[in-house]
Design a binder for these strands. Structure first.
Length: 815
RNA sequence: GCCGUGGUGGCGGAAUUGGUAGACGCGCUGGAUUUAGGAUCCAGUCUCCUACGGAGGUGCAGGUUCGAUUCCUGUCCGCGGCACCA
């Protein structure tokens, strides 16, 4: 009867040991080199942990443990990103205050995370909803405000009249509220914005400084979306004003046959001719009812209406009609375009639909068939000013663009400009469960920031969290809290009722981990200098753009103000892939394919779960869960146990002798492979190497103690509970956590002989074993003497002999 | 549509610079042990064929090369993100 290893005893035992001995407590000063390894901290949802969380956490834990064994002072903290919509929705439905529900969720998450044996320094645990934490989130907001990076603006939000509240995009489904199915409209409301666009260039350029996957960098570049072009002013004689458009193709100005404004462009009402005002208003209404997503997503067919007005094309003085259409977005560029149907796909479709003229100004395509948008192969035509003083005919578009911009500039019609896709960050939320924005409004309209000494501005306790009905946050229901009277001057102020978005707390949490107890500062600058930057940051790919971009933005502001010492917060980044359900689909309650880590830990133990998630495949890739696969890992750990421990729980098969050369080779090959794989974060192959070494032990009667020890050390980062248990059975009284990582020596990896492949015309025909000192001629002779080879070579002319040392011989014969 | 990413046995995957494709694990097959089952151990397991031998094979079609999973061109499919960005 082969005993199962007792993970139910071992795992809680060592978790308790680590807790009581504060094994993983980390200090801010050390002789050791530092290593800061960070997980994206979780939102503690009511559903508890799912198996996707431990994937990233296991990877960072393995590396943290490995780095400790290599002599690094490792900072590896965990905390909670606990503000957010679900707790507030739950409060509205049940009356349970978000702080209570949040505390409950955190307790569950913490219990689950601790059951997996991660080596966090729990003394540094933080919680974004703790006033001791968000006091500093508010402080950073004030710094942004002082720097002129926070401003108020009227911005359209999803307004639901029936619910009397503003909805997040995810709460709106097909233009209706998710709750109740009520209509939702776009309504402008006063909002706080953060001027992230002021940092666009640096956010773009400094991607050079970080060691991130190219694909993530590319996504951020695309999000920032820098594009070079020109602003061009078109006069509108009818109203004595002008409209400015942005274009990347000023060379095609002569082909601009009409102009399109976004329906909400401020000039639309002024330039709409009386007889068109009905249709224009109707069109604006319809566009306003669509969300931005609907406008872009569903508008496969072009639509639009003519305003009745005309603009003057500056390059040829021609009058062109002005239309409005929702394919032009107010939020990008100037909200107006010059339409060049011959050389832009969208304009081409629109012109075809409404039978507008199409004028070719770049030759090389067939504009009867499609818009010609090539920038390198075309040649400019039909592009001369009426007085003949300026032409770009005969030029390549890339040259023509430069020349045209110059001409526009010297004639006062426009100038070169850089446009970003990136928009300013809409920072305020009409919610209760978020950080209050530390701002006062005076009735004269002035805006006054709170003093540092007034922080934290805590959330008022509300008996019931319910919508204000006006679209403002539920905070306006706290009448006393909202009103502030200055006792000295008698002035009356109203508090800002908006709160911050969930992103705020996660924008700087990596800094608070450095110095979480500090009540005087967000963090001590000396401590910051010691730990920053984060050496390795691991989290889900869904945060590839927004979270990482926002955090980089705040970090750069803090850098400019001298509060942090590095330009970039996260040196190296890895995005783990999704763990899919057994059906290969994304895990979700509705599909019924969710695996609960508690169940896995209960049946197989935490070490098995950790190992299995790492063995599934490369960390970055998405991969499906497979329940019978986990059995294989469980068997492996049981085999490890039986290799070391007998049925009575005593260490067994232990020998004091030195390992022989064959075993030494296996051991050192394993050290090398596992170490290399650690550096490359290639844990699946590291684990298979441990399996190979363990299989080698299985065939031995006695195992030398030194060999056992090295195996346990290599296993320790992956299966820490089992490793601690075996380590203690090898009669060590202290934790394995800080034992030095084994080193390999090349001498054991060198063999006396090796195998060589022999190919004939590229096909494998035989393999031979040769000694290290064999010469090329000796090996070739040996190869040719092989019967299997001779069969294909004899009687044929040898054209070539390819000899790759240590690897193969390829004999090329005339066939 | 665009951008990113991937496509290798029945399944998850391995193959660090172009050099013996399929490591390791799962599953499956046979055997040992067992009253039986489970567990454990041993052996086999890419496909096809005329089978002690040979042919084919890394989504598909070409190309470069003595030699391609790896490099190049074209093409198909899956996944993720974005979505009229001027």
């Amino acid at each position: 009867m082969a005993a199962k290893y007792p993970h139910h005893e071992i795992e809680p035992k060592w978790q308790k040991f680590w807790d009581e001995n504060k094994t993983f407590k980390v200090y801010n000063h050390s002789e050791k080199p530092k290593y800061y390894i960070l997980d994206m901290f979780p939102y503690p949802s009511g559903a508890g942990l799912h198996v996707g969380h431990p994937e990233g956490y296991t990877a960072t834990d393995i590396l943290a443990r490995y780095k400790r064994m290599q002599g690094f002072n490792v900072l590896h903290p965990m905390g909670w990103d606990a503000f957010g919509l679900p707790a507030e929705q739950y409060a509205i439905q049940t009356g349970v205050h978000p702080s209570l529900k949040t505390a409950e969720n955190i307790a569950t998450f913490k219990r689950q995370i601790k059951s997996l044996g991660f080596s966090y320094d729990w003394d540094r645990e933080i919680n974004t909803t703790d006033e001791k934490y968000y006091r500093w989130t508010q402080w950073i907001f004030l710094k942004l405000f002082e720097k002129g990076l926070a401003y108020e603006a009227e911005v359209a939000v999803n307004w639901c009249e029936e619910l009397g509240t503003v909805l997040a995009n995810e709460e709106v489904i097909d233009g209706k509220s998710e709750r109740g199915g009520f209509p939702v409209v776009r309504k402008p409301m006063r909002q706080w914005m953060l001027k992230i666009t002021a940092y666009a260039d640096r956010l773009l350029d400094d991607l050079e400084l970080v060691d991130w996957p190219d694909s993530i960098k590319e996504m951020q570049r695309n999000w920032i979306g820098r594009s070079e072009g020109a602003r061009v002013r078109f006069a509108i004689p009818g109203i004595g004003d002008s409209v400015t458009v942005f274009t990347t193709r000023p060379d095609t100005l002569w082909g601009a046959t009409y102009m399109v404004l976004a329906p909400e462009h401020p000039l639309v009402s002024r330039l709409t001719a009386d007889e068109y005002s009905g249709v224009v208003k109707g069109y604006q209404d319809r566009a306003g009812r669509k969300s931005e997503l609907d406008r872009t997503d569903l508008a496969k067919e072009k639509s639009g209406v003519f305003t009745g007005s005309y603009a003057v094309n500056p390059v040829n003085g021609k009058e062109i009609p002005i239309w409005i259409s929702d394919y032009v977005l107010m939020s990008y560029g100037t909200g107006a375009i010059m339409a060049v149907p011959a050389h832009d796909q969208r304009d081409y479709e629109f012109a075809k639909l409404f039978e507008l003229p199409i004028v070719e100004v770049v030759s090389g395509g067939d504009i009867k068939q499609a818009a010609f948008i090539e920038i390198e192969s075309g040649i400019m035509i039909n592009s001369t000013t009426p007085d003949g003083s300026f032409t770009i005919n005969g030029l390549k578009p890339s040259i023509a663009i430069r020349n045209t911009i110059e001409w526009l500039g010297s004639n006062g019609f426009g100038e070169a400009t850089i446009q970003y896709k990136l928009r300013d960050w809409l920072f305020s939320r009409q919610r209760y469960w978020g950080e209050p924005i530390p701002i006062l409004h005076h009735e004269d309209g002035s805006v006054i920031p709170l003093n540092d000494s007034d922080l934290p501005l805590t959330l008022p306790v509300l008996d019931q969290i319910k919508p204000s009905g006006t679209g403002e946050s539920p905070l306006v229901n706290a009448r006393e809290w909202m009103q502030v009277v200055d006792l000295q001057s008698g002035m009356v102020y109203r508090r800002e009722s908006n709160t911050m978005p969930q992103w705020a707390g996660s924008c700087w949490y990596y800094l608070r981990f450095l110095d979480p107890e500090n009540s005087k500062q967000g963090w001590d600058p000396e401590i910051e200098k010691y730990w920053m930057p984060v050496d390795l940051y691991i989290g889900g790919a869904e945060h590839a753009v927004l979270h990482l971009l926002y955090a980089r933005f705040w970090h750069k502001v803090l850098y400019d103000l001298g509060y942090v010492s590095t330009k970039e917060p996260f040196k190296r980044l890895i995005n783990q892939g999704l763990i899919l359900g057994e059906d290969g689909e994304k895990m979700s309650k509705s599909r019924g394919n969710v695996i609960n880590p508690d169940d896995v830990v209960n049946v197989y133990g935490a070490d098995t779960l950790r190992l299995y998630e790492m063995f599934l495949g490369p960390l970055e890739r998405s991969k499906p869960w497979n329940t019978s696969g986990i059995e294989g890992i469980y068997r492996f750990l049981n085999r490890v146990w039986r290799n070391f421990v007998d049925e009575t729980g005593q260490i067994t098969r232990l020998s004091d002798s030195e390992p022989d050369l064959g075993l030494m080779r296996e051991i050192h090959a394993a050290i090398k492979k596992v170490t290399d794989d650690m550096e490359n974060i290639s844990f699946n192959t590291a684990i298979s190497q441990l399996m190979i070494l363990n299989n080698y032990f299985r065939n031995m009667d006695l195992i030398p103690k030194s060999a056992m020890e090295i195996f346990v050390l290599l296993l320790a980062p992956f299966a820490p509970h089992l490793a601690e248990e075996l380590w203690s059975k090898l009669e060590y009284m202290h934790s394995i956590a800080y034992e030095p990582w084994p080193k390999y020596s090349e001498e054991y990896l060198v063999k006396n002989d090796y195998e060589m492949a022999i190919q004939v015309n590229g096909k494998l025909r035989d393999t031979i074993t040769v000694t290290n000192d064999a010469s090329r001629d000796q090996i070739l002779a040996l190869a040719k003497s092989s019967e299997k080879v001779a069969k294909y070579v004899s009687g044929k002319a040898i054209l070539k002999e390819i000899f790759i040392p240590q690897k193969l011989i390829n004999i090329v014969v005339k066939s």
